[in-house]
Design a protein around this nucleic acid. Sequence first.
DNA 1: ATGGTGGTGCGACCA
Length: 258
Amino acid sequence: MRIVSWNVNSLNVRLPQLVRWLEHDEARAPDILALQELKLEEGRFPRAELETLGYQALVSGQKTYNGVALLARTLPTDPVADMPGYEDPQRRMLAAAVDGVRVVNFYVVNGQSVGSEKFDYKMAWLEAARGFLAAQLAQYPKLVVLGDFNIAPDDRDVHDPVAWHERILCSTSEREALRRLLALGLHDTFRMFEEGAGHFSWWDYRQAAFRRNLGLRIDLVLVSDALRAHCAGAGIDRVPRAWERPSDHAPVWLEMAL
DNA sequence: ATGGTGGTGCGACCA
């Protein structure tokens, strides 16, 4: 089973790249695909085009901002788009079951800058996410949590840790919030297969950051203890980031032997 | 140097 997370930064703009990416290497096409930053309402989701490629989609959409989807060969079941007890008009979460695996797709709040109002929202959102994931784990031991976490787990995940020291996406409080999620019994699958620095999933559009590999690794695929031994490979697909008019994020993937 | 790029949508706001 191959599972992928990709922040597409507007599905309206990126649909041609998504289609091209799904077709360019069919042997590596995902069984499950989690998308973030659709920036469209559910009614504008391109269901027909994706059905042609063999995918059924669950969508939690929103005009202009946010928006997430879960795609699989058969429609994911038992969907949840709201974290119980946490009111959030922003569409940032979608959980459902596919082939006996529970999948939670997150588009974590960016947070703008440490100490801002948006930062407070980010920290509150992450605390709600911790409670939600604890409940999901209790109900579904085989859990995958993936998406744009807007947190670089440690300095290996940052091209210039000095310049980014205690800045948004890299601050100690954000990293501790991520640690509290991992402490539930979740594992950063990329680090099961690669311990080195310099592997990124997001590069700013400015200053030719991708060409110079000035990036951060903020898109993650986490698995629960019950799935850990089944992980066979994980990585970041930089290919579509080099295409014309790309998303600023690369797809990140996990291969599981189930 | 508080810049730089891109998406949404037409003026800011978000990342």
